[in-house]
Computed example of a mutant assay.
Amino acid sequence: MNIQLALDRMKIEDAIQLSREVEQHIDWIEVGTSLIKEFGMTSVRRIKEAFPNKTIVADIKTIDNARYEFELCFQAGADVATVMGVAPLVTIEACMDVAKRYNKKVMIDLLNTSDEQKSALMRCKDAIFCDHVSKDQQEESGERHLGTRREDPTIQLAAAGGITFDSIGHLIETLNPDVVIIGSAISKAQNPSEAAAKFKQLISQSGVNR
C-alpha cells in the first residue's frame, strides 16, 4: 500500500522542502491541483527533478481537452495524471490512450460520480480509481473519509479526503486501497516527518502488504 503525499496551497519551494522532510516515509508525491493552477507545469517539472525516483502524480483533474493536458503532464515528468470520472467517456478514453503511449498511468477521480457512471468507467482496467471526499465537503460540511466496501478486488484503488490517524485503520479494513492519499495530516503536522512515519507504521501494523 503506497502513501501518496498531497501537496496543495503552498509554494513550489515549500512543497519540495516538505517532501524532503518526509521522503523516506512516503511513496508517491502529488503535485496538487492548486500548485498546478498557480505555477503550471513548472510545479510538476521541478518536483520530478527533485525526486526522480518517486512516482509523481499530477492532480490536474482534467475534464476536457484531455490529450493536450495529459501530454503536458507526462512531458513535464508526471508518472500519473488525474481525470474526473464525471467527464465524458471519450475524454477518459483519450486520457487512457495518451497514458498508454507514454507508458504512464491514469487516476480517475470518482468525486460526485453516479453508480451508473462508475459502472461505465470500470472498462478502464488499467486505471487507478480514486474514492474521494472533496476539500469543500471536508471544510464546509465537516465530512470525513470513512471508506466503503471494496466490491471488485482486481481494480486499482486510491482513497483521498481527510484521512487521519484515527480513520486510516477503518479505511484499510473497509476499502483496502492500493494508495492512500494524505495531505494536511502530514503537511500541517507539527512534525511532518513523524506524522508520515506514524502513517507508515499504522499501515504496516494493519497487516496489509501491497
Rank of each mutant, 00 (worst) to 15 (best):
F129G: 00
E139Y: 12
I186K: 08
I172K: 07
L121G: 01
I172E: 07
Q138F: 04
C124E: 02
P153Q: 05
R149S: 08
N176F: 05
E116C: 00
D166K: 03
S187M: 01
K188A: 14
E173V: 06
A159Y: 08
S187L: 00
H145C: 14
H145N: 12
C130A: 07
Q156K: 15
K118Q: 08
Q117G: 05
D126S: 06
A120Q: 11
H145S: 13
A185L: 03
E173I: 07
G162T: 03
G161V: 10
E139L: 14
D152P: 09
A185C: 04
K188Q: 15
F129T: 02
H170A: 06
S167E: 07
I155P: 02
E116F: 05
S141F: 15
V180D: 04
G162V: 03
C130H: 01
R144E: 01
D115E: 15
D131W: 06
V133R: 09
F129L: 06
E173C: 09
Q117R: 13
T174M: 14
R123I: 04
G183Q: 11
S141K: 15
K188F: 13
D178H: 10
E143D: 08
D131E: 10
R144Y: 03
Q156F: 14
C124V: 05
I128C: 03
E173W: 08
C124P: 01
E143H: 07
I172N: 04
